[in-house]
Amino acid sequence: MFKIKTYNAISVKGLNRFPREKYEVASDIGQPDAYILRSHKLHGEALPESVKAVARAGAGTNNVPVEEYTKKGVVVFNSPGANANAVKELVLTGMLLGSRGILPGMAYVNSLTHMTDADEMSKLLEKEKSNFAGFELQGKTLGIVGLGAIGSLIADAALALGMNVVGFDPALSVEAAWRLPSQVGRMENLQSLLARSDYITLHVPAIPATKHLINADTLKVCKKGATLLNFAREAIVDAHAVVESLDAGHLGKYICDFPEPILLNRHDVYAMPHIGASTEEAEENCAIMAADQLVDYLENGNIKNSVNFPAVAMDRNAGIGARITFSNENVSGVLGHVLSVLADHKVNVVDMVNKSRGDVAYNIIDVEVAPSTQVIDALAKVEHVIAVRVI
């Protein structure tokens, strides 16, 4: 029986992916095999030795001490793309709000509470509507920084609206490139994209390399009057630099999902309360993906969508005695030493796979017969081995 500890309110559809005959799932559970969570911060919390994996029902893992967990052999999963449609729709909403006088127009209408005559109100609004005129998106250029799951969906939608789309992503994967519409123009650098775009939307992770990616210097390169949208991570944009650019009349609008005190009560800033992925469908999709990844890892040792371990998968063949998985520091000779231990104990290897990522390596080994406790103890004592499991 596997034990799963939940944090936050995880969608029932996700929790139902854990078969009740194999899993005990609760928010208060001792010696859990894994965590599933949304925004709960694990930094500074003691980690039970029983925990083998953590699954985040969402894309970002800033709330998980990934480096610390990696050293302990704990696999950290996220749910990339599961909330992509929700974020895409909110970005489109932001662009539409920013292009027309929708919010100030509605605020003006709601201020007319002193009026009682409908005809009089209609005449007044006809006179004042020019104050809330805007621009159409068709024919404008949208620059997308980050062309992953969310960026590619936004590109599709923007093209359907008749926009010109350019993109920049120095870490574009082959898989992401296949998803990307062919009409998207590839920019060689961020500055080229900023200089061409009427609208700029950010979809990159919050890592040291992207901290204040948008700053005083990059904002100077932006097209005058451009609208900047940030529905990725707060740290990517220097809010003080944005305010300075807005005050100088260079940047046109800033639309984001990360309110800060300096951004409040401005006519040129639309700040939303971090609702990019706050839809019922997105929460369900994230929870389902996170749960499925935990199940496959705990039952089969397979890893998909981990932020700290390599992607590894191997089919399980009928008649195999057992599956051994182990993680180790990514140095030469460890796998050979492990295989020698198995050979010394007459444990025959049927199939195996080995992958590495950065400083960590992960291995799946299928053997004819289940290894004894003595064998597992010997494997755990191999130099540079971090964690060993038998499934």
Score class of each variant (00 low, 15 high):
G225F: 02
I29F: 09
T141C: 13
M106Y: 05
K304N: 13
A177N: 13
P208L: 05
S340C: 10
D156K: 12
P371M: 07
N16Q: 15
P208I: 06
M352S: 13
P273C: 09
A235V: 14
L263R: 14
D238R: 09
A287E: 08
G98C: 03
G134Y: 04
K52I: 07
A160V: 07
E283Y: 11
K88I: 01
A26N: 15
I391W: 13
S27I: 00
P181Y: 05
V375G: 09
V184R: 00
A271C: 08
V382T: 05
N285L: 02
Y69A: 00
N215P: 01
D28Q: 14
E260N: 14
A277D: 07
N83C: 07
E368W: 06
E67V: 11
A248C: 06
L47H: 02
R56T: 11
G58F: 07
F231A: 09
S332N: 12
I10P: 12
V375F: 12
N131W: 06
T279N: 06
G276N: 09
A318R: 11
S332F: 12
A107D: 12
S278N: 15
P65K: 00
L190W: 03
E283W: 08
K5R: 15
C256L: 13
V51F: 01
G358V: 04
D351W: 11
A378F: 03
R233Q: 10
F258E: 09
N83S: 13
F231R: 04
V25I: 07
V349G: 08
V243Y: 05
D247I: 11
M314I: 12
E329L: 10
R316Q: 14
V87N: 05
E329G: 07
R233P: 10
P65W: 01
I154C: 01
V331E: 03
L339E: 11
E368S: 14
H114C: 07
D344T: 15
D156N: 12
L15N: 06
E188V: 11
K13I: 09
V91Q: 04
T113F: 11
F18E: 10
A107F: 03
V242N: 11
L298W: 09
L147H: 02
H240Y: 13
G252D: 02
E283C: 10
P261C: 08
F309A: 06
G336Y: 03
V367H: 05
G167I: 08
Y7I: 07
G358K: 00
I236Q: 02
N300Q: 15
L190A: 03
P205M: 06
S173T: 15
G333E: 00
G58M: 07
L161K: 05
G319C: 05
A55W: 07
S306L: 04
P32M: 03
D238C: 10
L15D: 08
A370C: 13
G301Q: 08
V109D: 00
Y199K: 04
T70H: 00
A248K: 14
V76D: 00
A206F: 11
S50P: 01
M115Y: 10
K253Q: 14
E128V: 11
L190Y: 03
I255T: 01
G139Y: 06
F168Q: 01
R17L: 14
A53Q: 03
Y35I: 03
I391G: 14
P181C: 05
V237S: 13
A195F: 02
D33Q: 03
A290W: 06
D238H: 09
H384K: 10
L15W: 09
K381V: 00
